[in-house]
């Protein structure tokens, strides 16, 4: 059974969202989903970029003005 982990990075500046995401996904099992909540426009770019480079499935959703959820599925 896969699970979903929500990581609250609202109000955090670079590189904290990315470093926290790295740490969080390390502890997760293949198939789990990590949802990173950010409101820093730079993190909205560098977190998906990092995750795609790792070969994970990534989707970015704009949930509010200046707020995004980066949905990362640990595919391997």
């Amino acid at each position: 059974m896969s699970k979903e982990v929500v990581l609250d990075c609202l109000g955090e500046a670079c590189p904290i969202p990315l470093v926290k995401s790295e740490k969080a996904i390390e502890k997760m099992a293949v198939g789990d989903v990590l949802v990173v909540q950010v409101d820093h426009s730079c993190a909205m770019k560098n977190v998906p970029e990092w995750a795609r480079k790792q070969g994970y499935e990534v989707e970015v959703e704009e949930v509010d003005d200046g707020e995004w959820e980066i949905i990362i599925e640990k595919t391997k």
């Binding site: 109000g11 820093h40 426009s41 003005d65």
Partner: peptide
């Protein structure tokens, strides 16, 4: 313009 402004309070 990007409709992406948000006041980010100190956490």
């Amino acid at each position: 313009m990007a409709s992406g402004f948000k006041i980010k309070k100190i956490k």
